[in-house]
Design a protein around this nucleic acid. Structure first.
Length: 439
RNA sequence: GCCCGGGUGGUGUAGCGGCCUAUCAUUGAGCCCUGUCGAGGCUCGGACUCGGGUUCAAAUCCCGACCUGGGCGCCA
């Protein structure tokens, strides 16, 4: 057996115009339809499907029997002649001369991937390798790849450099979330909750514009359709700008991602109507948000974070992507810059922070950062944290730290909201949640 | 962490004290069928999460464990 799979062609590369040509295809046995005298074998590859047709009596008997026997989802290579055929799905079919079974699939599959019988997400995740063979799931991850590429292209085009910061960190955390402890030789360490501190330190490097696309780890025991314990975050940090500029970068980036994905042909497999959002996005202040909520009877005390139902109410009211700005300092991290009361004429204890909201959930949050060593140290203390454990971070603010601003965007949340997918686990190949550690 | 649901062949389901030797679809095996594209027809195979309890009788009711769906909290 030595079929030449090195020159195999994809099913969609072959057309009726290749009539008479000898070709090799390789892929998975998607379906078999036996009509007695004629047998159809549907082979699936990355690009699509090819119909292999065997007429009893016209094809060698041994081959007919072997094709008939090969279990579904086995990996096969087939060599044969292309025949123009109006009755075949792609306008052509392959009349096989040889078939090599590269790997025979065990029978009784963990999932039906032809779409005849559905499966629950949990079942699909248990057999994710097989779930990825379905059209819908396949395209979700091709789209994910495209989204990441667009983000990189966009940021690269704006003069950013891509960076990689450590995921194993010492105890210091910006607070707010629980960390996963790990054993680091003789010491305890943690998995990084976000690249926040490191990307800020890079602002003292002179790079001016940095971004990172990397996993973040949260040890929260939340068990919802929009949380993961390992997620992917796009983080940017920009020197010599304020929150306003990085908000503009964010909305342009989101619009750019939407318009790129809108053009993706595989989108049709997801059955949705994707509308590119118009920029600039609407901006409302925290004060306006709670006033709006109050009108609908949902009272939020000033200084409290928005509840899930408050987010949903606001989302229904506004109906499109929007920013909430001017948050109370108390519910934002220590690195968010308080507004300048003299200049901006607003009340005290508000900071220059913003959240990017989709009507259904929060997508990103960012702020103008504190760049004064003294203020940053005071803020850390006022949050009840110990500045000593932030020494490595604070040091960067002692020797020339420019004003800067940045944000972090959840890749999975962007994907799920854009693709109207209800469960965040669907957009991660192998999700990590409260219960799932394998596969 | 709190509050509600649910665990039945490989997959998706019906049944919710005796009619269950458990329904249907799909899958698998076999047979018929020369143009299927969710092919069709016939035959066969395959399941009540686990452990206690109640009852003459438990898939069905109760308790616990494990798994799981949703909402909320926390959080991005």
């Amino acid at each position: 057996m030595s079929l030449l799979i090195h020159n195999r062609e994809y099913s969609t590369e072959i057309t009726a115009a290749d009539h008479g040509k000898r070709v090799s295809i390789a892929g998975w046995v998607h379906e078999k339809r036996h009509l007695g005298g004629v047998f159809f074998l549907i082979v699936r590859d990355f690009s699509g499907f090819a119909q292999v047709t065997l007429h009893k009596g016209e094809v060698e008997k041994g081959l007919f029997e072997r094709v008939k026997k090969v279990p579904r989802e086995s990996v096969v290579a087939i060599e044969g002649k292309v025949k123009r055929e109006r009755k075949a799905p792609n306008g052509y079919e392959i009349i096989p001369e040889r078939m090599e079974v590269l790997n025979e699939a065990s029978q009784i599959l963990p999932l039906d991937i032809t779409g005849k019988v559905g499966a629950e997400l949990d079942t699909r995740l248990d057999a994710r390798f097989m779930d990825l063979r379905t059209e819908r799931t396949k395209h979700i991850f091709i789209i994910r790849s495209r989204v990441l590429k667009v983000i990189r292209d966009f940021l690269d085009g704006q003069g950013f450099i891509e960076t990689n910061t450590p995921k194993i960190v010492s105890a210091a955390t910006e607070g707010g979330t629980a960390l996963f402890p790990i054993s680091y030789f003789e010491r305890e360490a943690f998995l990084n909750q976000s690249p926040q501190l490191y990307k800020q330190m890079l602002m003292a490097s002179g790079f001016d514009r940095v971004y990172e696309i990397a996993p973040i780890f949260r040890a929260e025991e939340h068990d919802t359709t929009k949380h993961l314990n390992e997620a992917t975050s796009v983080d940017i940090e920009v020197a010599f700008v304020s929150a306003k500029e990085v908000m503009a970068i964010l909305e342009e980036l989101i619009a750019c991602v939407y318009s790129e994905i809108e053009r993706y042909p595989g989108l049709s497999k997801l059955n949705l109507n994707l509308e590119v959002p118009k920029i600039p996005f609407r901006r409302i202040t925290y004060d306006e948000a709670i006033a709006l909520l109050s009108e609908t009877g949902e009272e939020i005390e000033w200084g409290e974070d928005l509840s899930t139902s408050a987010e949903h109410t606001l989302g229904e009211l506004i109906g499109e992507l929007y920013f909430i700005t001017d948050w109370p300092c108390a519910i934002k991290p220590f690195y968010a810059q308080p507004i300048d009361v003299e200049v901006e004429g607003k009340r005290e204890d508000i900071c220059n922070a913003f959240d990017l909201m989709h009507p259904k959930l929060e997508l990103a949050s960012g702020s103008q950062r504190v760049h004064s060593y003294e203020l940053l140290k005071r803020n850390i203390e006022s949050k009840g944290l110990n500045p000593d454990s932030f020494e490595f971070y604070l040091d960067a603010f002692k020797y020339g730290m420019p004003p800067h601003a940045g944000w972090g965007l959840g890749v999975e949340r962007l994907l799920m909201s854009m693709l109207e997918i209800d469960n965040i686990r669907e957009v991660v190949l192998f999700p990590r949640d409260r219960r799932r550690l394998a596969p």
